Simulated scan of single mutants.
Amino acid sequence: MTHITPSDLSILLVEPSDTQRKIIINKLNKEGITEVSTAKNITESIDIIERHPPDLIASAMYFEDGTAKELIKTIKNNEKLADIAFMLVTSEVKREHLEEFKQSGVVALLPKPFTAEHLGAAINTTIDLLSPDEMELDHFDVHEIRVLLVDDSKLARNHIRRVLNNLGLNKVTEAEDGQQAIDLLQDNMFDLVVTDYNMPEVDGRELTRYIREKSQQSHLPILMVTSERNDTHLANIEQDGVNALCDKPFEPKFVKKLLFQLLEH
């Protein structure tokens, strides 16, 4: 496998402020990234992306012609561009405004101002996405592990599937919600469940209860992916039988560590 370094990455920085662009470019340069193109708005950025797709887009939230929400939707809905990593740089702190980005498969949410540590972690996540790194397990053939992936967001499923595939887990069956997952569990055997928490009708917690109390696969390892911040809710989720909790964005290195613990315990 060819090892990718920060200096190999090409980044498109989408930022309306001249001052902010200079500050961020300087920070990227310090991380060893020199191939940086820039855009001031959505229209300009889409033109650049279609002509020269970058490895990573680092985008502000608001522009004169729209928001990062429109930009990420345009990219994710284009099959040729959907795999481009996307990082949001924003001073926004309201959870409801950031939730949609977490659900859309961004590699990182960087606060303004961000630290070198924040940026370094986001760059490493991007490199992990671009560099397949199969897990080596003692008790399983990683290629034979049957995963049930449950999330009501197609964008989130795409991102999580990509991370799982990079780790060598290629047998991934998708469910759009907890009820569809229950239907699949009744007719199919799995080795691992990766599920979102917040879903309509049957959520991740109810799905976990079903698996533990009513299914024929009550000992299935369950990895729950959630942006939930309520400690009481998280404690209740764990009591219901979830084996591990993973935050959104779904970071490859952390996920690899969790899956190794789940499957090799």
Rank of each mutant, 00 (worst) to 15 (best):
M1N: 02
I4F: 07
I4W: 03
S7G: 07
S10C: 11
L12T: 03
V14E: 03
Q20Y: 12
Q20M: 15
R21S: 12
N29V: 11
T34Q: 14
E35V: 14
T38R: 06
K40T: 15
D47E: 12
D55K: 05
D55H: 14
M61V: 02
F63Y: 10
E64Y: 13
G66F: 06
L71V: 01
I75S: 08
K76S: 07
N77D: 06
D83N: 11
M87E: 05
T90K: 06
T90R: 08
E96V: 07
E96S: 08
E100W: 12
E100N: 12
F101I: 04
K102I: 11
L109F: 07
L109N: 10
P111T: 14
P111G: 15
E117G: 04
H118S: 13
L119F: 02
A122Y: 04
D128G: 00
L129M: 15
S131G: 01
M135D: 10
E144K: 12
I145L: 07
R146K: 15
R146L: 07
R146Y: 05
R146A: 14
L149D: 02
L149M: 09
D151Y: 14
R157V: 11
L164Y: 01
G168H: 09
N170G: 06
A175G: 04
G178A: 13
Q179C: 14
A181T: 04
L185Q: 08
Q186G: 12
F190S: 10
F190N: 05
N198W: 03
M199F: 06
E201F: 13
L207N: 05
T208P: 04
Y210T: 12
S215N: 13
Q216M: 15
H219R: 13
H219G: 10
L223K: 02
L223P: 01
S227N: 13
E228R: 10
N230Q: 12
N236Y: 09
N236V: 11
I237S: 04
Q239V: 02
D240I: 03
G241Q: 04
K248W: 05
P249S: 08
F250W: 13
E251A: 10
P252F: 00
F260C: 01
L262M: 13
L263Y: 02
H265M: 01
